[in-house]
């Protein structure tokens, strides 16, 4: 079980959070201007490292903040507590 640090509430148990999915790179501004290969790569191909991966978490049973962390897929160590996506 993870101990996730919500930017608003501080360290909380994983059971308070919902996984918000893989943190994509910035969406390209002009997909129409890109090559098909680059667009397909952006849409479908995630990084799948044995190591740190960036992902979003949602403090759904808490304050509702969305934030991004970097977690190691081999150890579950949080390697970067990241920043919030406060609206």
């Amino acid at each position: 079980m993870l101990l996730l640090t919500c930017p608003f509430c501080g360290p909380r148990d994983e059971s308070e959070f919902a996984h918000g999915g893989y943190a994509r790179k910035q969406r390209p501004d002009n997909p129409q201007m890109m090559s098909d290969d680059a667009w397909v790569d952006y849409l479908t191909v995630p990084d799948n490292p044995m190591g740190p991966v960036r992902e979003k978490w949602w403090h759904v049973r808490g304050c509702g903040t969305y934030f991004t962390v970097e977690r190691d897929t081999r150890t579950h160590d949080i390697t970067d507590e990241g920043e919030s996506h406060a609206s």
Partner: peptide, 10 residues
Amino acid sequence: PGQSFRRDIK
């Protein structure tokens, strides 16, 4: 939830 290469149980 999330990618993982661990073969354990959470």
